[in-house]
């Protein structure tokens, strides 16, 4: 101990309350975010070509899926490589709901999301206690099972096997027509809004007490249990949460493409999303979204040169070696370092 009891400095009440940002700073940051959201939703439709917008739409969809993977990685230390099973599977349920069960688009979405929640809860309940490596392999196994299930002969009447299903709806969905989702420019505003909603939801959860419980459990599960915490339910809830994000993203994908096929359930989609998360950085909400955009544009560029896989591999290695915390993570560290330096100089 540092000294005798009498020499100890009395601690003020509320000692555990962390210092918070100044109100002015928070209002400024909120206004800047609002401006960025508004400009980002509208401006690209006027300045970018349809081709670029289509790439950006796909990149942001990949980014939202990457966000789900990154959230689970950063908060629980678990890596899922079965995210595409939900991303693509939800599209199948949406299509089957409308064509086979005569559901309205909204009801089909509701049914699809309930199925996602039930699936994630059941799978998570079984595998969330396993080691990180076993968890990863089990998500892979579950994903592969689902991608093979849609090809089963017995389900062909519903899934159309390898041919996939055409998805379109009559009337409106949330005030939008089918064409709004398939038009690259109009879909940009939708997917941009969805990215912000998903990003803010993940950001909010990260900053919440629930996020703190998840991170502390990741760091030291035993100490958490010895501090009175149940460490199982929060991780299960996080797994369901990321699958809901992946499911919502899958619905947007199927509405945008107007088509769902076994390819959208495949391992390739999951690994692309994982790579996008690593490129952007898993520690923030913006990282995976930026990673998705970088990945989509890079793939197009590499494809134009005829060496997609080779150049993608080289780029992934370079990105991860140069930016171990991802592009956004590196930027964040740089800005924080600048602020700290300036503060030290002013002190």
């Amino acid at each position: 101990m540092n000294g005798e009891a009498a020499a100890r400095v009395p601690v003020q009440r509320d000692a555990l309350r962390a210092p918070t940002a100044r109100a002015g700073w928070r209002i400024g940051a909120g206004a800047a975010a609002l401006l960025a959201f508004g400009v980002g939703a509208v401006a690209p439709q006027y300045v970018a070509s349809d081709f670029i917008l289509k790439l950006a739409d796909g990149g942001l969809l990949l980014g939202i899926l990457a966000l789900a993977i990154a959230f689970l990685m950063s908060q629980t230390g678990l890596v899922t490589i079965g995210a595409a099973s939900v991303y693509g599977g939800v599209g199948y349920f949406f299509a089957i709901g409308m064509t086979e069960w005569d559901l309205s688009p909204l009801a089909a979405i509701a049914v699809s999301m309930v199925v996602v929640i039930l699936y994630a809860a059941a799978l998570g309940a079984l595998i969330i206690r396993t080691t990180p490596l076993a968890f990863m392999m089990l998500t892979l196994a579950a994903g592969e099972m689902i991608s093979h299930a849609v090809l089963l002969e017995g389900l062909r009447d519903y899934t159309s096997g390898a041919d996939g299903l055409v998805v379109s709806f009559q009337g409106t969905l949330f005030g939008l027509e089918s064409g709004d989702f398939t038009n690259a420019a109009r879909f940009w505003a939708i997917v941009w809004t969805a990215a912000w909603v998903a990003g803010l939801a993940a950001w909010g959860v990260r900053r919440s007490r629930f996020g703190a419980v998840l991170r502390a459990t990741r760091q030291n599960e035993e100490r958490m249990r010895f501090s009175g915490f149940d460490t199982y339910a929060p991780r299960l809830a996080a797994f369901v949460f990321v699958n809901v994000i992946a499911g919502a993203c899958g619905l947007l994908h199927v509405l945008n493409s107007g088509f769902v096929s076994p390819e959208s359930l495949g391992l390739g989609v999951s690994t692309n999303a994982l790579v996008a998360a690593l490129i952007g950085g898993t520690a923030t909400s913006a990282g995976p979204l930026v990673g998705g955009l970088i990945f989509a544009f890079a793939q197009d560029e590499f494809g134009a040169r005829g060496f997609t896989q080779l150049l993608t591999g080289i780029a992934i290695v370079l990105f991860i070696v140069v930016f171990p915390g991802g592009v956004v993570g590196a930027l964040d560290a740089f800005v924080r370092g600048m602020f700290r330096k300036r503060q030290q100089e002013s002190d």
């Binding site: 000692a15 502390a216 010895f226 501090s227 009175g228």
Partner: peptide, 15 residues
């Protein structure tokens, strides 16, 4: 057996 990456304040507050 503590939370190495949390500040002392964060871990005491959480518990």
């Amino acid at each position: 057996n503590i939370f190495q990456d949390l500040t002392v304040r964060e871990q005491l507050a959480l518990v």
